[in-house]
Design a protein around this nucleic acid. Structure first.
Lengths: 208, 208, 208, 208
DNA sequence: AGATAATCGAGACGGTACGTCACGTCTTCGA
DNA sequence: TCGAAGACGTGACGTACCGTCTCGATTATCT
């Protein structure tokens, strides 16, 4: 979806080089329009017009409007959410989830919803979204949870339940408040506590 | 979405009555096509052709293609999943979730994904889907969980996390196996155990 | 290109019938725009906009913009040029050619040029144009020439040379004046006189 | 259409000189493609690709694709048709027209049709074509006809009728056979004979 | 029985957007 | 400076569906 190798490209390739300003204009326009009118009313022609760009230029670089939105979304998502590991899992988790909830309460929530919808419908895009965005988010929360000993399986399941809970509220259009984030963190910690107790019983070599 | 007062309709109204066979043909065609080509390639014109029906007939009875699919989906979902309450929460929950996972591993999974996608994009449809289908499913699991004492808040959050975990796998296109259902049930029970302990501490009147 | 059978159509066919006003609007718009901006700047989108019609409506009834222009052109050409046979071939021919020249000196000349150009480029269209328009024009002049005995071969060649001379001037953008028409008629009559003499010599049965 | 002052160019101009091989490649490619796919499917991009040349190189030297084809066509037309004046007008004319018919029966006929079509549509190009090609062809036939005394007006009209007859068959897609050429020559001579008689009567100074 | 009224299949219609093609211009590198 | 490569804004292509609108035919209820 993107050039892979800026260095080798800069010199060797013949022909007029890609215009980076155009590239940015498309990304910004796609975000602006999605937040404004909703994803279902977003069209390639609309993006092109808003960005002052030819349609072909969009088709040259992205395979679908979802891909445009994804790149725009993933681009401005880099290092937006800070991850802290102070030792107090619940407060770290609450902080992290609080920021996530805050972010997706606003217009960015609309965009995320669009992308999740596209994932549900288009398998190839789902894979793309996973690579470009979701894996990073999963790593974020993995980092927070790494403060506690937990089997990989369990940790993954906990993550599925946490993000799942957020997506549940996105789907059912329930608000993502700070209070909800706090409670979700508490629930997760409760579950992790339980899991650790279970794991300790099942593999009691440390105990001996 | 449907005429509500079927009774008054059946007698009083003049004119040719609605053809029930046509109605069914539309629902079946919409499911068939969604499972076959995916929701994004589903069109009203396609449904009409497949069902051997005029387009207007569809527009007369449903406001959108999502509404058609929803009715078709909700219609064949009635009493598909049985809920048992034997007293053993984990096994009851595992049974219930096992059936849910089995159902959505097949072609019906494609349909559910489509409807969830539409909810993410269209707020009005989300409300409709909630009423027509999701509330029933939430009630199903509520019934299973009712075997344990739990505050309403907590129960709701547990449900969000359970269904959320399933949707997470639907979105990320991970398989919904029996093993996953079983493990999810175990996780949920672990969490509920933890929550009950917490609640007992906070409101210790029962203890006395 | 056109409906073949108004009678059977009027009753039997299902569906909404073709809108005749729309049909006319397209024809008129296509002529107007061709005469205004020239055929090369004529577009289907332009016709649709000018006629206040959807593009699909044009594509439903005509295979190309040339076909639209042809129908429009042939439609208003019916019985425009009168053919008289007074016995005086030269004056009849001069009269006929005078009207033809007059007609194609104006904006209709632009349209005819476009259609001839399309014939040169597209073989299928050439056949269509022949059937819809040219055969009728050839018959017109045949009628005028029928006042003189002449073998079919010779008559056809004379016609090719007469119309050819006109088209030569259309191609080379020389004016089509009344004087030119008159002289062309004289030339043709000179040729016919010569041919008749030749034919009389070759088949002298009448002489005996 | 071309740089006129080749001499001054050859020496004085700085920078890399025009590559003549490239020039030829473009001309050949344009002919090849026109004969292969027809003029309507001919594109500048196609010519560039076929010739292995940048688009800009074409735009630098020619104003339109019609101009490219014209140069290619006119270039290989130089001294193709020989003109003989043996004193026997009919046989000379038949010979000349026979060669013309033979030439335009083949793939070159497609190219000529394309150029005539462009003349009909584009007035500026018509003028160009006239200068670059047609005037030469008219001179050819003028030379043949110069064997007979004939007023300029009449000679011009005869030429219009002869070439017109050929173009008529090009437009209506009738074959250009040797037999047709022969008959056309005979017709022309018949007409010229008649005209000469007329002229002799009108200006009888020679008779005395 | 006849009038009235709603349904149905069919498909024309004005639109919007699609994804593609080619245009003519431009901007880079290498010769 | 030329030339190949190819990005760019532009505009038209021909197609797919949208949601609406007639048609004729059908099927009920209400005079």
């Amino acid at each position: 979806m993107e050039k892979q190798d800026d260095a080798s490209r800069k010199s060797g390739r013949p022909g007029r080089p890609r215009n980076e300003a155009t590239h940015q204009a498309v990304l910004e326009a796609s975000l602006r329009l999605t937040e404004l009118n909703g994803y279902s009313r977003l069209t390639i022609e609309g993006i092109a017009a808003e960005a002052g760009v030819g349609k072909q230029t969009i088709y040259r670089w992205w395979p679908s409007k979802a891909a445009v939105v994804l790149e725009a979304f993933a681009h401005d998502a880099r290092s937006v959410v800070r991850v802290r590991t102070t030792g107090d899992l619940e407060s770290d988790l609450a902080g992290f989830l609080g920021e996530v909830h805050a972010r997706f309460s606003g217009p960015r929530g609309t965009v995320l919803r669009s992308l999740l919808a596209e994932m549900l419908i288009d398998g190839e895009f789902a894979e793309e979204m996973l690579q470009q965005y979701l894996i990073g988010r999963v790593d974020d929360i993995k980092l927070v949870l790494s403060q506690r000993k937990l089997s990989t399986k369990h940790r993954e399941q906990v993550i599925e339940m946490i993000y799942g809970a957020i997506w549940f509220r996105l789907v059912t259009r329930q608000p993502l408040t700070a209070a909800i984030a706090k409670r979700l963190a508490a629930m997760a910690v409760t579950m992790i506590d339980g899991l650790q107790a279970t794991e300790a019983v099942r593999k009691p070599k440390k105990k001996a």
